[in-house]
Simulated assay, not measured.
Amino acid sequence: MKLECPYCNTDLIEGFIDSGRYSFKWHEKNMNLIEKFTVFGGEVLSSSPKVLCYRCKNCNKIIIDLNEIP
């Protein structure tokens, strides 16, 4: 299935982001330093370090569908 970038309508490229050996986490902008910069902070979005995403090389955006995270 081909997906288009919602910003510029260019075809998106399917790929993944790898967070190394740690789980994939969400950090809010205003979290305190301990939450931001330690493995203990943040909301775990996936226990896997690899998350499927779609990249637009034209406008340099990455889209992650949280419904596709196992």
Results as ranks from 00 to 15, higher is better:
Pro49Asn: 10
Lys57Asn: 12
Val51His: 02
Gly42Val: 09
Thr38Asp: 01
Asn60His: 12
Asn32Thr: 06
Asn30Ile: 00
Arg21Glu: 13
Cys53Lys: 00
Glu14Arg: 12
Asn30Gly: 05
Val39Gly: 08
Lys36Pro: 07
Lys2Cys: 00
Cys56Phe: 03
Pro6Arg: 04
Cys5Glu: 00
Gly42Pro: 13
Glu4Asn: 15
Tyr22Trp: 11
Cys56His: 09
Leu66Ala: 11
Asn58Tyr: 08
Lys29Arg: 14
Ile34Glu: 15
Cys8Asp: 13
Tyr54Phe: 15
Ser19Cys: 11
Pro6Gly: 00
Phe16Ser: 13
Glu35Cys: 00
Tyr7Asn: 14
Gly42Asp: 08
Lys36Glu: 07
Leu33Phe: 06
His27Phe: 09
Arg55Gln: 09
Asn60Thr: 09
Lys36Phe: 05
Asn60Phe: 09
Asn67His: 13
Leu33Thr: 11
Glu4His: 12
Pro49Phe: 07
Phe24Cys: 06
Lys25Pro: 00
Glu35Pro: 01
Cys59Val: 05
Glu35Gly: 05
Leu3Gln: 08
Ser48Cys: 04
Thr38Asn: 01
Asp11Leu: 11
Ile63His: 13
Lys36Tyr: 06
Leu12Ser: 03
Val39Arg: 14
Val51Arg: 06
Lys36Gln: 11
Leu45Met: 15
Asn60Val: 04
Glu28Ala: 14
Val51Asn: 04
Glu68Asn: 13
Lys61Asp: 01
His27Gly: 04
Ile64Asp: 01
Ile64Pro: 02
Pro70Thr: 13
Asn58Arg: 12
Phe16Arg: 08
Thr10Lys: 10
Phe40Asp: 15
Met1Ala: 15
Cys53Glu: 03
Ser46His: 07
Leu12Val: 04
Ser48Leu: 09
Glu14Lys: 09
Cys8Gly: 07
Ile64Gly: 02
Leu3Trp: 11
Asn60Ala: 12
Ile34Gly: 07
Ile63Asp: 11
Asp11Arg: 04
Leu52Met: 10
Glu14Ala: 14
Lys57Arg: 12
His27Met: 10
Glu14Val: 01
Pro49Arg: 03
Pro6Glu: 06
Asp11His: 08
Lys61Gln: 14
Ile13Thr: 14
Asn60Gln: 09
Asp11Phe: 12
Gly41Cys: 00
Phe24Ser: 02
Asn32Asp: 15
Ser23Asp: 07
Cys5Met: 00
Tyr22Lys: 12
Leu52Arg: 15
Tyr54Lys: 10
Lys2Trp: 03
Ile63Pro: 05
Asn58Lys: 14
Leu52Gly: 05
Asp18Pro: 04
Asn58Pro: 02
Asn60Tyr: 11
Asn30Gln: 05
Cys53Trp: 02
Lys61Thr: 13
Thr38Gln: 01
Pro49Lys: 05
Gly41Glu: 00
Ser46Gln: 10
Tyr22Val: 09
Lys50Trp: 00
Gly42Phe: 02
Asp11Met: 08
Thr10Ser: 11
Leu3Pro: 03
Lys2Tyr: 12
Leu45Glu: 04
Glu68Ser: 15
Val44Glu: 11
Glu43Thr: 12
Thr10Phe: 11
Asp65Met: 06
